[in-house]
Amino acid sequence: MTIAHHLDDATLMRYASGDLDEAFLVVVATHLAMCDRCRKAVRDAEELGGEMLFACEPADMNPAALNALLNRIDTDEDAGKPVSPRPQPVQGGLPAPLARKVGQSLDTVSWRRIAPGVKRHVIDTDTATSSSLYMLWIAPGVAVPEHGHGGSEMTLILSGAYRDDLGRFGPGDIADLDEHVEHQPRVEDGAPCICLIATETRARFSGLIGRLMQPFVGI
């Protein structure tokens, strides 16, 4: 998979430090599962955490902590095993962070039509968050109304492709956009585009179609 659009460096650091809410974490982790380059970049960003942990001023521990821990490992039910078995590769299917939410295949996702040529599947989050997480299915040739963002928005392409001012976005590409960016994606002819989206707050569509679509798309 050739990926042209990657995570913003600030997003890499938010992932490494643990500062993404559930909606954005699912999108970022799904991209990471598809993108070798961003996985490496995240490892670098995590090294900063390792360095800060290594160099930080140690806190006073409860003197009983070490013995409590040693007792726990002695009575650990896994103690008999030399080491935990390494996880087995999962064959095929969607990346694990997305599969947890929608199942193994895009074919079994239930879509709800929200506008001509646009279907949506809302993904429930387990934790309370002001962000929303959903997938869109957009028919070939359809242009999504021009919109800016009230907050950050991330769009990860799962299949098909669209184009906008920023270029072509195909499978694995992520549009990691700031609040100020306006864009008007148009899906390429030939195949529908399925994407996974997290938005911080409702995006503002401009123009008449946008205002008509707003209550349906809810983005």
Partner: peptide, 14 residues
């Protein structure tokens, strides 16, 4: 929150 997505990625790395 759940750290499961992080575990998914580190398992892939392995």
């Amino acid at each position: 929150q759940s750290s499961k997505p992080y575990e998914d990625i580190s398992e892939m790395e392995l």
